[in-house]
């Protein structure tokens, strides 16, 4: 009788560690999974294009001045003017910028009527062409 009791007690004692309740932990882990799935749809991947802000009147033509890109609306189409060139694509702008000296940077003179997507495209073209100094100037030109 005593031996049987001892055996039973040993079983109870050794079984205590085996019944660690996992249910609540699994519940919380699933809640975490749900949380991550929900928040993943909230935050889309964003990046940024930086530029220093320059005062109007910056960038008068001179050999020591940065490259000046005028972004304006011409008959309903956004054009990028650099020197004597008037371009409609940022690819052409990037090609020209790549060939010019980059040390002095580039200044964007942006007219009010241009969609911001076209401005961002020009800034991206300058970044891709290797310009580290980029300035943005609000232009009062049409």
């Amino acid at each position: 009788m005593r031996r049987a009791n001892r055996k039973k007690n040993r079983r109870v004692r050794t079984g205590l560690l085996g019944v660690l309740p996992m249910t609540s932990m699994i519940d919380v882990v699933f809640l975490l999974l749900i949380f991550f799935m929900v928040t993943a749809s909230f935050s889309a991947d964003e990046d940024q294009l930086s530029a220093a802000i320059g005062a109007d009147g910056a960038g008068a033509p001179s050999t020591l001045q940065p490259q000046i890109v005028r972004i304006r609306d011409f008959e309903g189409v956004t054009v990028y003017e650099i020197g004597a060139h008037r371009l409609q694509s940022t690819q052409s702008l990037a090609n020209i910028l790549r060939a010019l000296p980059k040390e002095q940077g580039v200044v964007f003179r942006v007219s009010d009527s241009v969609p911001i997507a076209d401005v961002a495209a020009a800034m991206q073209a300058a970044f891709n062409a290797g310009y580290t100094k980029r300035s943005y100037v609000a232009s009062s030109e049409p």
Binding site: A44, D45, E46, D47, L49, S50, A51, I53, M123, Q124
Partner: peptide, 12 residues
């Protein structure tokens, strides 16, 4: 110092 936020093409 300022920056314009962009979204990667095809992303989000």
């Amino acid at each position: 110092r300022w920056a314009i936020a962009t979204r990667s093409e095809g992303g989000g």
